[in-house]
């Protein structure tokens, strides 16, 4: 297989534009997923019986093929980015909800008690003590969700919203391997860079967690 380096050089503009779209389509759902997972995870911690059904539903959602979900949402949202981002948001829940629950669970009982005994109210304890302590485990979930979302989003090209997925499908249609390889390598690179950035964010946000197993 020959790589046409010249083509890559001539198409850096479109490739990088597609990469930006790709990242937006992949990462916004993770952000939305996180915003949904936080209250959902808190509710699961608070009412333990909720956790099993929530986990089951989010796993079932994850098991539904993305194409099937596109077909469902396309009726409501059309050939728009939302049609790709809604399923990806739902997928992210199956990783993020358990991690939010585990993160909050990583706050040890003595810490919780000490906070209460020193005069933290419930809300203040949550915001100042429990959520900060949950951060490393939550970010571990965000890393998995982000990387899988970056790889999954390419399939969105089936409804015209795939970022670098466009180049993969286009390359296939034109029997032009260079375009497929370039887009694939870019997708992997984006995933690796995003993951590295998240590790960096975690290091900066939680210097106290460095000595721990988490």
């Amino acid at each position: 297989m020959d790589i046409d380096w010249g083509w890559i050089g001539e198409h850096t503009d479109t490739l990088s534009a597609n990469a930006v779209t790709h990242l937006r389509l992949a990462l916004l759902p993770v952000l939305f997923g996180l915003l949904i997972s936080l209250p959902l995870g808190l509710a699961c911690r608070r009412w333990g019986r909720l956790y099993a059904p929530v986990l089951t539903v989010s796993n079932i959602l994850y098991a539904i093929p993305s194409i099937a979900l596109f077909m469902v949402f396309i009726q409501y949202t059309g050939l728009e980015p939302a049609t790709v981002m809604i399923p990806l948001t739902l997928y992210s829940l199956s990783v993020l909800v358990p991690n939010v629950v585990d993160g909050l669970g990583s706050v040890s009982e003595p810490v919780r008690q000490a906070a209460t005994a020193m005069g933290f109210g419930t809300l203040r304890r949550l915001v100042r003590v429990e959520l900060p302590i949950a951060v490393p485990i939550v970010i571990a979930g965000v890393r998995v969700a982000a990387v899988s979302s970056i790889s999954l989003v390419a399939i969105g090209q089936l409804i015209g919203q795939g970022g670098l997925g466009y180049d993969i499908i286009r390359g296939y249609q034109l029997q032009f391997p260079t375009q497929i390889v370039a887009a694939s390598v870019l997708i992997v690179a984006l995933a690796l860079i995003t993951d590295a950035l998240l590790v960096l964010v975690q290091r900066l946000l939680t210097p106290w967690a460095r000595g721990r197993a988490a």
């Binding site: 020193m118 005069g119 933290f120 951060v135 967690a209």
Partner: peptide
């Protein structure tokens, strides 16, 4: 909450906040 801020409390395993420095742990109340 107000009552507790006027009562010192020490427990087994200390229950220090892992995400705060020693001085900030001490300055909690």
């Amino acid at each position: 909450a107000e009552l507790r801020r006027g009562i010192g409390y020490v427990i087994q395993h200390a229950g220090l906040f892992p995400h705060r420095t020693i001085e900030d742990n001490i300055a909690t109340v």
